[in-house]
Amino acid sequence: MEVTGHAQRTAWQERAVPPVEAVRPGLWSVPVPMGGPLRWVNAYVLELAGGGLGLVDTGWGADDSWDALRAGLTAIGGDVADVRGVLVTHLHFDHVGLAQRVREASGAWVAMHPADAGDLRSMTDCSPEESTEREVAFLVSLGAPEDDARADAGTPEERASWRRLVRPDRLLEDGDRADLPGWSLRAVHTPGHTAGHLCFADEATGLFFAGDHVLPRISPNISTHAGGAGDPLRDYLGSLEAVAGRAVEEVLPGHEWRFRGLAERTRELRAHHERRLAELLAAAREHPGSSPWDLAAHLTWSRPWSEYERRMRIFAVTETDAHVRLLASRGLVVGDGGTVPRWSATHLR
C-alpha cells in the first residue's frame, strides 16, 4: 500500500490537522475537525461544470467544524453558498452532521442511500427519551447490567441534536450516477459500517471516495444496533471483496490519508477480522455461556478494558456482538436461546 496523502499522514503523526489540499484539478480535500481519536473528517470539494461546487461528506455537526468547513471553501476561492449538491457516504454524525447547515446556507440537494435514509428518519422521528430507552434495552439484551447500560447510553439531552439532522432530498442506489456536472461519480453500495454506506467511484479519473469503508490505518467499526442488519460483519466482508477488484487510481478515505493499493488494503482488513474472530472463538471456548458484554471484556483492545466506558464501550460491545453473529452463522458458536443470549463454542473444528 502506497501513501499518497503525505501532508495528511504527517499531520496525523504530529497530532495536528492537515492543510486544505488540491487533490486533482477542480478537486480539494478539506479537513473538518472533530472530537475523539480520529481528529478530523476529510470533506471533498468538487468544482462543477457550469459553476458551483459539490461536496462528498460535510463533517461533524459543531460550530468549530462549521467554521473550518467554511474557511476551507474560502481558501479555494469558494463559499458555502456555491454548494449545489452533497453526497453523503453514510449517516454517522461526523459525515452528515453539517449537511443541514450546508443546505440551509446554499439550497443544495443532499443524497444518500435509502437504507441510511430510513435509519436516519427513524433517529430523527424518535424522541430523545425514546431513543435513549431503545439503546438501553439493546445493551441490556447484549448482557449489560442496566445501570451500566444507562451510564453508557447517556441522557436524552445529549441526543437532542439528532433531531436536527438532515433529511435527504435524493436517494442513490448501487450503480446510480451522482448529479455532479463535470464528474462521472457512480454510487457503490458497501453495507457493513452502516446498512446504507456508499462509496463513490469516478469513472474518468479512477478516484475512489471510500467514506469509512476502507481506511488506511484502522478498521472501521462494524457493529450491531437495535433494528439493524442481522449479520453486519458478513455484509462488510462481502463489501470488501466486492470492491477489491476495482481498477482504482487512488483511494480518498473519510479519515486519515489518501493511498493507493485498494486490493491490498481489503485483504488486510479481511485478515484482521479473521484474527478477531479466532480470538473471540477462543474466548467463547474458555468462557462458555458468556454474553457479548462478557466476551468483550476478554478481547484485546487499544487500552485496558477497565478504562472503557460510554460510547467507546458501546462500540466495543456491539462490535463483539457483530463478530459473535458471524461465528454463529458459521456454526462455530451457539446461543442458549435466552432473552440475553449466552454463547458457547461448538465442538466443530
Rank of each mutant, 00 (worst) to 15 (best):
M1C: 01
E2F: 01
Q8D: 06
R9V: 02
R9C: 02
T10A: 12
W12C: 03
Q13I: 11
R15C: 14
P25S: 13
L27T: 01
W28E: 00
W28P: 00
P31A: 08
V32F: 14
P37V: 09
R39C: 14
R39S: 14
E47I: 14
G54V: 02
L55R: 08
G59T: 09
W60V: 15
D63V: 11
A68E: 07
R70V: 10
G78I: 09
D79P: 03
V83Y: 07
L87A: 09
L98I: 06
A99H: 13
V102L: 12
V102Y: 11
M112V: 14
D116F: 04
T124D: 10
D125W: 15
S127Y: 02
P128C: 00
P128K: 00
E129R: 14
E129W: 00
E130G: 10
S131V: 00
R134C: 09
R134Q: 09
F138N: 03
G143E: 06
R150H: 07
P156L: 06
A160K: 03
P168D: 10
R170I: 01
R170N: 07
A187V: 12
V188T: 12
H189T: 08
H189S: 15
P191L: 11
L198N: 08
C199F: 09
T205W: 04
F208Q: 00
F208E: 03
A210K: 07
D212T: 11
R217I: 15
I218S: 10
I222Y: 11
A229I: 06
D231W: 08
D235F: 02
A242R: 03
A244E: 06
G245T: 08
R246K: 14
R246D: 09
E250Y: 04
V251E: 01
V251L: 14
L252P: 08
L252R: 00
P253D: 10
P253R: 02
H255I: 09
E256S: 15
E256M: 14
R258G: 00
R260N: 13
G261K: 05
L262Y: 06
A263C: 14
E264L: 09
T266N: 12
E268P: 15
E268M: 13
L269P: 07
L269Q: 14
R275K: 14
E286D: 10
L295Y: 06
S302I: 13
S302K: 12
R311N: 15
R313K: 15
I314H: 08
F315C: 13
F315L: 14
D321H: 03
L327A: 02
G337H: 11
G338W: 10
S344P: 08
A345C: 09
